[in-house]
């Protein structure tokens, strides 16, 4: 599903944020991405969502190299990738329902279908009774779950989360992680950046570890330099 081959990313004016990273995440597989602050976790996730482009190497989603796709194609790639942000990125002047419905509206789903799917999604994260609320009236954990409901509402095959439990208490964090595990069980590939090592080890999934931009555990051996794969 997701494959990185010798991927490097250098931001202008600084060293390599990622260097020669290779790994594979199969369809329906769940993995944690960990490493110290500044190790390159967010950078790796942004490459999958085409928020940034790799300096070198190949980023494949379903065997398509998305590192060089045209600007016009980017939205369609993103529709296959549900993203959960640490700061939720909700629209605060819209109801919970409208926030969750946004990906479906964008995809042109019919009105009736939207109602059905938004409620199914809110039910999944346990917020069905909050559909008419404004996000500002919800707790941090509830806002995070609205973000998750929005990310999964159009059933993307890939789910990414960047420190989704950053400022939640351990119990809530665990609940959120369990939720991700449920999506994995129905065939979604899930990749979660986190440095909550305790929780990660409890969950017992594949762990990819980054150190100074290099993948030191969980990755694949790099192909010899100069001839990627």
């Amino acid at each position: 599903m997701i494959e990185f081959h010798n991927v490097s990313k250098r931001y202008p004016g600084s060293g390599d944020a990622l260097s020669r990273v290779s790994f594979k995440l199969a369809g329906g597989e769940m993995a944690f991405l960990t490493g110290h602050s500044g190790a390159g976790k967010s950078t790796l996730l942004k490459l999958i969502a085409v928020l940034i482009r790799p300096t070198n190497g190949q980023v494949l989603i379903n065997n398509e190299n998305i590192g060089h796709i045209s600007r016009r194609r980017i939205p369609y790639v993103r529709r296959n990738v549900g993203i959960i942000f640490q700061d939720h990125k909700l629209l605060f002047d819209r109801t919970v329902f409208d926030n969750v419905a946004l990906p479906l509206v964008i995809a042109g789903v019919s009105h009736r279908e939207i109602g059905r799917r938004v409620r199914a999604s809110l039910d999944k994260v346990g917020l069905l009774n909050k559909e008419k609320s404004l996000p500002i009236t919800l707790s941090g954990g509830q806002q995070q779950r609205v973000g998750i409901a929005r990310a999964v509402v159009n059933k993307p095959p890939i789910l990414l989360a960047d420190e989704p439990t950053g400022n939640l208490d351990p119990e809530l964090s665990r609940e959120i992680m369990e939720l991700f595990a449920q999506f994995q069980q129905v065939g979604v590939s899930v990749l979660i950046a986190s440095h909550d090592l305790d929780l990660i080890s409890q969950m017992g999934h594949k762990v990819l570890t980054l150190d100074e931009g290099r993948m030191v555990a969980g990755g694949m051996h790099n192909a010899p330099q100069g001839e990627p794969r």
């Binding site: 969502a49 928020l51 016009r72 939205p75 529709r79 993203i83 909700l90 629209l91 946004l102 964008i106």
Partner: peptide, 16 residues
Amino acid sequence: RDEIEIIKLIGGTDAF
């Protein structure tokens, strides 16, 4: 601005 950014993040086309 924020709204536009979020719509781009979740796959809204330029036309949308």
